[in-house]
Design a protein around this nucleic acid. Sequence first.
RNA 1: GCCCCGAUAGCUCAGUCGGUAGAGCGCAUCCAUGGUAAGGAUGAGGUCACGGGUUCAAAUCCCGUUUGGGGCUCCA
Length: 605
Amino acid sequence: MNSKHDMHSMRHSLAHITANAVQNLWPQAKFGVGPVIENGFYYDLDLGGITLSEDDFAKIESEMTKIVKQNQPFKQFNLPIDQAIEWAVKNKQQYKKELLNDLKRSGTTVAKDLDVQELGLESADDSKVDSVSFYQNGDFTDLCRGPHVEKTGDVGVFKLMRVAGAYWRGKVDNPQMQRLYGVAFKTQSDLDAYLQQLEDAKARDHRKLGKELDLYVTSPLVGAGLPLFTPRGTVLREKLAGYAEQLRKEAGFQRVSIPHITKTDLYKVSGHWDKFGDELFLVKSQETSDEFALKPMNCPHHNQIFAGRPRSYRELPLRYFETTTVYRDEKTGELGGLSRVRSITQDDSHVYCRRDQLETEVGVLIKNVQTLYRLLNMPLKARLSFRDKSDAYLGDESLWRIAQQVLSSLAVESKLESFTVEGEAAFYGPKIDFMATDALGREHQVATIQLDFVMPERFELEYTNETGNPERPVLVHCALLGSIERFLSVYIEHTAGWFPFWLAPEQVRVLTINDSVLDYAQKVKNEVAATVLAKPLRYNELRVGLDDRNETLGRKIRDAVEAKVPVIMIVGNKDAEAMQVSIRLRDKEEKVELTNLKSFLQHLV
RNA sequence: GCCCCGAUAGCUCAGUCGGUAGAGCGCAUCCAUGGUAAGGAUGAGGUCACGGGUUCAAAUCCCGUUUGGGGCUCCA
């Protein structure tokens, strides 16, 4: 038995022990499912009117410890399905009964919304089930396929972490159960290491750093999910968007501009009204009876620019680009920090091209994505988000097949590390969604490239081809950063706030040692401010601050380091006399002549 | 939207049994004029998120709202 499997059994057994403990404490408890998850396990519970809170954890944990100490053996046995249902009825386990009935009726097909591990099946195929498996320890019995450790004493160390609401079988209309989460490891030191990891992640949480580094604020008067960016945060937004724009310009994109409100008619044509109408912010005119909305995406508007005059095949591909904010009335419970907001700024682009230009256009965009994330030092994976067999998608199925084929072969050609997920497509077409890996190894969805044969159809976009006949263009949506807000949440945590030199809100801070060098310090500051970086942004004027407070040097250094300013320049009498500055970088110190300062800064990475 | 937990000074937090508030940091003023991660002293700052209710009395108990966090569901 390999160690992973072993850990899995331990965590799975702990899920049972958790349920066992809960049953001892609250005998009326009804149980849902209790699978193993990353680093631990959970169990879904229904305690009637009783709600658990973290205050109950100590009590539950000590009951669990009791069971562990008794070292009860886990015994496996099978029951014919009808006897299993009788067992559920007799023990008033309505959720288990529902599962068993589904299994009896149609095997795992109906119950595939649940973790197969939790179903007491001998095999997980689609056939009907005749007999199911149970595990028993002490006086606690649960429907379960296993595997388990031999005895309750073999489960390692554990800790209950949180309790949360979860809908039975993941459906909003079902009753909501209480999901009790725990983590578990073989040894105390493994658990401690994991808890330490959580602490470390907390230290670079973008919400904490956003406040500490003065990047953005929120205001109850403005509303939830509507962050306000400070001057420092705005630098990050503009420089990142500026670089994304620079890549687009190199690829032949032109900037366009659109208003932020529109008649809702636009979305009735696009199909968004039917699918996302309840997430639109509506705007009333006091002049006309027209119904307006804040734009929740940009493609329909860009489509209207395309449709603004007749188009010839000669002018394709037409490539539009814009960094602009869209507004979505996300459910309040889903908002959080910068990762999920209601004002979403996208570096959005749309290519209108002929069918035979599609591969080239998408290929260029993939290169852009690769260039950007290489610069930001984040490894990429590509998820090919394709359709499944459901009818949630618009447009002709053969077009979908072609589009998915194009994306698959481009992924190979571009040497992307890719995988395919069916059912992740947009309603109008398949996508490549790019996942970036951050410094803690977490994956985040960032850039996206989306093929669209549907919008051009619905908006009746056309151009005149070589033979004088109208033809539909293909539409390619692409965002390199995706949502700039969400991207910032990822990137702040990736860098822990230590942004690269070209991007840092305050790139240089000049510290004075005493008042007698104020003039010289000002001169140094001016020299820095007059310096322009040409890479990776083609034009990037240096941002420099001056700390001439009446404080000790030690204090000023500490403050500059805490503000994560990458270049600290120290200016005292010795420096003024020698016409030099003492430069302190993160990993080294050196003296630079004032006359060499510009070139020194331009060569920093 | 649903479930759970929070909201006390600009920030991070303490505040016991219900008796109208405290620390550190920051800020201001003064002293110290300094060479690589916190110099010293003094001082100002709070309708305890907001609105109701219970009570002789509410930061504290109850209800609602706003808002933050953890999940579920959703994500063009």
